[in-house]
Design a protein around this nucleic acid. Structure first.
Lengths: 154, 154
DNA sequence: CGGTGTTGCCGCCGATCCTGCGGCAATCCG
DNA sequence: CGGATTGCCGCAGGATCGGCGGCAACACCG
């Protein structure tokens, strides 16, 4: 059952990554199958967890979230539960779009969106630096988003 | 017309960010409007560019893309067109999910997904380092994805 | 104050879409 | 070679979509 994805499955995923709200009948004729068979595949892909969900892509700027920042966070390793508490806090923070634990010069890489620089200062001071165990942060403000769709290669 | 989003609009966006394939009638009863009015709002949100599209969320691990990496790239500023050529190459590379030009210690932050370490070595050598003007790179491999949905706060 | 235009919503209805069912061909296996 | 399984198709009843006309609230203005 592992990775039992044929050519049609991958084609379905490829289409749905970019046009997630396409009706099943149109998806069917694009992959060259009947709507019934296509719907069955879609249902199976969701059940197997290959498709974890569907979502709308929004324009951050039109929503007043013009500033995208990446923050490298170093934790104080002597503080007990520092990692668990930091992770929990980050999951609760709405400004944080992503947070990854990395190996290398620091511990976490945080991607966050805020309205502007004052808002970022507030988020950094009240949201990140106030967490216990946070040792050091380094902020990189994004000047231009060269590529940002995040579509997986198939 | 700028930012003319009322409470219902934001509620629609909030729901569609997580459940992009919800039928219009269900969306309507959740926001407490008729299906007609709700569909009209949805159409308007797309026309105004607030909603830029819909997409399926896929599980990278089930697709054999288990390794997530971030790469900090520094360019040789003396090479003419270095920035434009780098940006163009990155847009063509399927492994690259995101690429942001940042201000700070380096020039571009690249987020990429590959199958495993050997695949990453190949991508780094043939995809990134072979580009003219690339001066230096620093790679951070993700050990744990603490938060990765990327849902905007509303 | 009343006329008028605008906006946002509703109900209705024909067209479209979804989904469960039965049938069929290909494949696999004992 | 017989039988089970798998994946697909066509069909049909029911759900959903989207365009249309109507209506109420509101703002503007003479």
């Amino acid at each position: 059952m592992t990775d039992g994805l044929d050519r049609v499955d991958r084609q379905i995923l490829k289409i749905l990554q970019r046009e997630g709200r396409i009706p099943n009948v149109e998806l069917a004729e694009r992959v060259g199958l009947s709507p019934t068979a296509t719907g069955e595949r879609l249902r199976r892909l969701q059940k197997d967890g290959v498709i974890t969900g569907f979502g709308a892509r929004l324009d951050p700027h039109l929503l007043g979230l013009s500033l995208l920042v990446f923050v490298e966070v170093s934790l104080d390793k002597t503080t007990p539960d520092a990692f668990a508490r930091f992770a929990a806090a980050v999951r609760r923070a709405p400004e944080v779009l992503e947070c990854h634990m990395v190996g290398g010069g620091f511990d976490y890489l945080v991607k966050a969106r805020v309205a502007d620089m004052p808002a970022y200062r507030r988020f950094l001071g009240e949201g990140l630096l106030s967490l216990p165990g946070v040792n050091n942060t380094r902020t990189y403000a994004v000047m231009e988003e060269v590529k940002s769709d995040g579509v997986l290669p198939l």
